[in-house]
Nucleic acid binder design. Structure first.
Lengths: 194, 194
DNA sequence: ACCTGAACACCGTTCAAGT
DNA sequence: ACCTGAACACCGTTCAAGT
């Protein structure tokens, strides 16, 4: 916005941060190499020092939104009292879904990227592994764990698309709880709650 | 592909059909006015006779995929015997979800459009109204009916995104049934199954 | 009145010419 | 060795010049 001093040089970090800001403000189609360069007070070609491609830049954006999700950060506002030890998977997966939703709602304009890019960001992969581990220690098979995580993740992305036009916390909460209930019931179909 | 005779003239229908074929074959980013025109043996400017904009063309694509969904066409493969009369909403909403999923899997490259465009296609709106009516006659409030329809629709779109990379029928079926169960249970929390 | 070529203001990216 | 301007092959769309 204001004039920039010379010595502050470019970095991949700075390029991506500015790209995300541009997309947040003006939408994904406003992200062009030339316009991004203008915001950074440099030429379009200089960006190619820090980014291989436009596709690479979009991948970086995708990773930036997905990175640093903290499943523990957002606690389940359930009224039921849960045995925290036994249902750790539920707390973690619910927290992951809420964290993902809030990240997507913070950056709604990047949502189209989630329809075409796989989850490769190392931080996101690590987070998924942590949630998966909670399932496995609750005696889920790893196939069932993966299914549970994906079904909730896909609902969350789908719901965030809906919420671009009208935010709706109760619908999200309803769908999330229904899925978590379904996962819990499928895992222990015979037992009753203590 | 082969040479085309002159008298076959353009129409909005033909422009949209060819655009969808192009997107199916080569992806959304391959859809340009010039390339579409080349496939139709005409000049890019001629397309503007039948389409206001590129945005208008994309809306038409979105509507073409969404149009003509038949909730009755795909029956629920549930093992449970259901009272068809009482749970008509469940049959219809499940059928709508399955019809939507199969339409999205038939045209996976249009999925990014579903992250940015509202459902305006008249046929799709009519179908939604029919499903909504089934809920209302089962004594759902219209707000609850809308919530139920959206939560399932958003899951379906999210799941179709996931299935672009790996098709997974059992995950879809699991999530759908969990949501329908949740809707049913929320609606009649006290009663038991007959 | 209808249609369409050339033209405009953009793109992403290459590459040779500069330092 | 590093950087970057001009240039290339594209875009969507306008508009005046043709019929």
């Amino acid at each position: 916005m204001s004039a920039r001093r010379q010595p502050i040089s470019l970095s991949r970090e700075r390029v991506c941060t500015e790209a995300l800001a541009l997309v947040d403000e003006e939408g994904l189609e406003a992200l062009t190499m030339r316009r991004l360069a203008a915001r950074l007070d440099c030429e379009a070609m200089s960006l190619y020092r820090h980014v291989k491609d436009k596709a690479d830049l979009l991948d970086a954006l995708h990773a930036a939104v997905l990175g640093a999700l903290q499943p523990e950060g957002i606690l389940e506002p359930s009224r039921r009292v849960l045995d925290a030890r036994r249902l750790e998977w539920r707390i973690l997966l619910g927290g992951l879904a809420r964290a993902l939703r809030s990240a997507l709602l913070r950056h709604p304009n990047v949502l189209p990227l989630f329809t075409s890019r796989p989850v490769n960001a190392p931080e996101a992969v690590a987070t998924l592994a942590r949630v998966q581990a909670a399932f496995v220690s609750a005696r889920f098979t790893s196939a069932d764990a993966e299914r549970a995580i994906y079904v909730v993740g896909m609902f969350t992305i789908g719901h965030a698309i809906f919420e671009k036009s009208t935010r709706n916390d109760s619908t999200f909460r309803f769908g999330l709880e229904a899925l978590l209930d379904g996962i819990e019931r499928a895992h222990r179909p015979s037992r009753r709650r203590p």
